[in-house]
């Protein structure tokens, strides 16, 4: 039985036996080569489910919206499972609300090419799951540091690279909305009394949004790349996330989304933490 057949069979069983109220997976999009998240609540709906390299959306992003319905089965590749860990750590969802159907992932494609985030993925298999659908995939060798070129630049040059990139931002917030970490009831950019961040697309407003968002990702972002893939303007949002994740790793030895019981890196204090910045 192919992995897809197994997936459909298992989803159908879970719904028929009422073990879950919903299975979140993907189905083929109308355009060839695309897939869209699917939310199946009836056993016969499981026949359209797919999982392959078209399935880039991080499905963990939908949990805060549907968890009130009951126990949810989520199909999770490596990055989705790490986002689930982040949600568990941050108490946005409880373990018994989830049934995690793990799938190994060889990277998702964008316009026929391997997604940039997937090129440096170190966790292609789910880090937590209740059951695996299909086999695990081989762990890839460590990828070269994608920030190497960026970090060779002077601070002024780096600023210019970031400014050029975010100058295209149209503030549609697709990056925020597809992000499993962005579950705040009111985002800092949406408050208007006081108005923390300007609403225009001027460099200062765009940069403020992206830098603040990056800060909010520290110790939490699992580098799934959903934001970069979702950005209609092709902004390299992963550059911000990778840099922040790298700093958290260097300073606190922490990697986001691996161990549910560990507190989030920035919510924990250790006397050994480097804190020369307050000396």
């Amino acid at each position: 039985m192919s992995r897809e057949e197994q997936l459909r069979k298992r989803a159908k069983e879970l719904l028929a036996k009422k073990e879950v109220v919903m299975v979140i997976c993907y189905r083929a999009g109308k355009r060839p080569g695309t897939a869209t998240p699917a939310f199946v609540t009836r056993p016969d709906g499981a026949d359209s489910l797919v999982f392959d390299d078209r399935c880039g959306m991080n499905l963990a992003a939908y949990l805060p919206r549907v968890k009130h319905l009951g126990r949810i089965a989520v199909v999770a590749k490596g990055c989705d499972s790490r986002s689930l860990v982040t949600l568990l750590k941050e108490k946005q969802v409880t373990r018994d609300q989830l049934l995690i159907l793990g799938v190994g992932c060889e990277g998702v494609k964008e316009k026929g090419k391997l997604s940039d985030a997937c090129a440096t993925c170190a966790y292609p298999n789910p880090v937590i799951c209740d059951e695996m659908i299909g086999e695990k995939v081989t762990e890839p060798p460590p990828a070269p540091d994608p920030l190497a070129d960026f970090e060779k630049l002077t601070p002024d040059e780096r600023w210019q690279v970031l400014a050029d990139d975010v100058s295209r931002c149209i503030r549609c917030y697709a990056c925020r909305q597809v992000c499993p970490n962005c579950y705040c009831p009111t985002c800092f950019v949406d408050t208007n009394s006081p108005q923390w961040v300007g609403k225009t697309t001027a460099e200062s407003d765009n940069m403020m949004f992206h830098l603040m968002r990056a800060m909010h990702m520290a110790g939490r972002c699992v580098e799934c790349g959903s934001c970069s893939r979702g950005c209609p303007m092709g902004i390299d949002l992963m550059r911000f996330n990778r840099k922040v994740a790298k700093i958290v790793k260097e300073r606190f030895g922490a990697t986001a989304g691996l161990v549910p019981d560990e507190p989030p890196a920035l919510a924990a204090f250790d006397p050994g933490d480097k804190q020369e910045f307050i000396q």
Binding site: I170, Y173, Q177, V178, P232
Partner: peptide, 25 residues
Amino acid sequence: SLPCVNCGACTFVCPTCHCFDITDE
């Protein structure tokens, strides 16, 4: 609507969407 994440991408790239907000700087 379930797959929709409510970003504004569709409305900002649309040739006919025309809603605006007004802000004082």
